[in-house]
Design a protein around this nucleic acid. Structure first.
Lengths: 196, 196
DNA sequence: CTTGTGTCAGAATACGCGTTCCGGCAGAGT
DNA sequence: ACTCTGCCGGAACGCGTATTCTGACACAAG
């Protein structure tokens, strides 16, 4: 008897993600959300109960659609340094395909805009950064050319994570992917020089 | 005949800076501003005309109070690499003295929270980043151990700037200055290894 | 065709915040 | 002591937005 729903909670979160990502949390009103997602207020509130819950639901969607394709290969097998080089290549490709200057990284944006005043969002951000860190750490572990001591490896992985987030931030204010590629190349050159 | 004013536009901007820095632009209401600065709404509006103008006035104050003491020595004379090492040492000291986890860098925060939707703020951010970049570039120029080609030097200076901004971001989610020092040391180690 | 369920669009509500406005008063000059 | 200037505290206004509510409607089942 009921009408067939035109959306699923997942597809709603996906549409909302695009909006929050480009517009930020505060600047994205419910009116905009309704218009851009094509789902009525009623639909949004029955699916998620509020704006913030919908926002939180965007994090796993972002991970699935954006982070995983770029990051997952890093934890694969093979040369560790090559895996990290590949990561930054895919990162710039991703930024490029989104368009430059672009919205940067959804999570990095959240970490400065929302996380400081919201523990739940801060937790999502911390989780994301930890994922990056462990991925880089396992890649460094596989790197054959050097045997880094464990604490140093962890610190190095964090440094790579910090730079990765910085590169996303830079992608918001440049219109040339070549610039990003150059930044990444410089950093990777430093890294490679040290490991070999 | 008039009452002696209890504040100057500069001291008002200084107090406002502290609030915007810790609380962000959106989350800092005029009520909070009035309470924390000790200046009445009337005083704020006659001095600056509105919230955003006051916010913009905070940028030069931030530069004077925070950026200059940390950055200016970089453009001095002497060994270039040592100047950059000194910069990161002072950066971490500054973050430490503010308290950890802290509010990060006022300008980096502005770049993700406000700049995307406000050209005037974006210009202030770009100006700040350019200042960092040229400072690092002149330091690299003074570095005696290597003769970097000019384009590479500029790219390297930008990479250092990106990492510096990333480190400030990291200072918002860690409570140990030792962690920051470690991140900086790892990065500087990479840099030094490459230049020598 | 009728019925009933769940969705949709938009109005109504409640609230927060930037801005403006107004009486009261503190203090320097005479 | 008196006056007069201009600043202060706080109320008032207008706007924007998250949330709730309501009546109309679309569609599948009988």
């Amino acid at each position: 008897m009921p009408r067939k729903p035109s959306h699923t909670p997942e597809s709603l979160a996906d549409s909302a993600l695009a909006q929050f990502w480009y517009g930020g949390y505060e600047a994205t009103s419910m009116d905009i959300l309704v218009k851009k997602t094509g789902v009525s207020r009623h639909g949004i509130y029955t699916d998620y109960g509020g704006k913030k819950a919908l926002y939180l639901a965007c994090f796993p969607r972002y991970h699935q659609h954006v982070v995983s394709p770029v990051l997952d290969p890093v934890t694969g097998s093979g040369d560790g340094m090559a895996a990290i080089v590949g990561y930054f290549g895919r990162l710039v490709e991703m930024a490029e395909s989104i368009g430059l200057p672009g919205p940067g990284c959804f999570v990095v944006n959240a970490s400065t805009e929302v996380a400081p005043h919201d523990p739940e969002v801060a937790a999502k951000v911390a989780e994301h950064n930890a994922r990056l860190e462990t991925a880089f750490s396992t890649a460094l572990q596989r790197e054959q050319s050097t045997r880094l001591p464990m604490p140093h490896r962890k610190a190095l992985a964090r440094t790579i994570m910090i730079f990765s987030n910085g590169l996303w931030t830079a992608s918001r204010s440049t219109d040339k992917s070549e610039t990003l590629r150059e930044h990444a190349a410089v950093f990777l050159d430093l890294l490679e020089y040290r490991l070999k």
